[in-house]
């Protein structure tokens, strides 16, 4: 694929799949700074891997693969090596306003509790739960993780049970 075509594909996918990058980065980090750093690393990996994309998987499956593979191999101490890197992205909380602000605050807290519970899951269970919450089918989850569909079901059932327990703990603590 020529360079300019690659660049325009990268730009359009950035808009479409920004949400997946943010969700994975938030699920595997504890601070906003780490989250931004991991999101940036995921996007760099996407760029590096883009020439190898053959279209056998759908773009959303492929994006999740790159994001999860990067997140699972990412270490917080790698930040030191990238300390001088320019900040090219930021996680922004959209302002809560209007008549629905109370409901939005409650939802925001619920999402935070959900992330807190996901971070306490084993790494692969966290990946499964992320895909499940994004309403991916068993087949798509199997494609992202490299598992059989049957095995996805088994692992997801268990992960959901653990997530439920963790959420109960989170709500008791808060």
């Amino acid at each position: 694929m020529p360079g300019d075509k690659l660049e325009s594909l990268f730009r359009s996918w950035l808009v479409e799949h920004e949400g997946a990058v943010l969700k994975v980065a938030r699920a595997y980090t504890f601070t906003t700074e780490d989250c931004q750093d991991l999101a940036q690393e995921i996007l760099l990996q996407v760029w590096r891997s883009l020439p190898q994309f053959e279209g056998r998987a759908s773009p959303s499956t492929w994006f999740y693969r790159v994001a999860l593979n990067t997140a699972l191999g990412w270490h917080r101490n790698e930040r030191r090596r990238r300390a001088r890197r320019e900040a090219i992205l930021a996680v922004e909380d959209l302002p809560v306003a209007g008549p629905d602000s109370a409901r939005q605050m409650v939802e925001r807290e619920a999402v935070e509790r959900l992330y807190a519970a996901i971070r306490r899951l084993p790494k692969t269970d966290a990946a499964l739960v992320l895909l499940y919450l994004d309403e991916m089918s068993y087949r798509e989850m199997a494609e992202v993780l490299g598992l059989s569909e049957g095995n996805v079901g088994v692992k997801l059932n268990r992960a959901r049970k653990v997530l439920g327990k963790l959420l109960k703990e989170e709500s008791h603590e808060s």
Partner: peptide
């Protein structure tokens, strides 16, 4: 409920990307 809660985050948080700077960075990185 979990999925519904999950969906709400797109209206709460957003990744602000400076695309030009990102492209400069990926070229430099490469």
């Amino acid at each position: 409920d979990l999925r519904a809660t999950w969906k709400t985050q797109s209206s709460q948080t957003h990744l602000a990307i400076d695309t030009e700077l990102l492209l400069q960075e990926v070229r430099r990185n490469q």
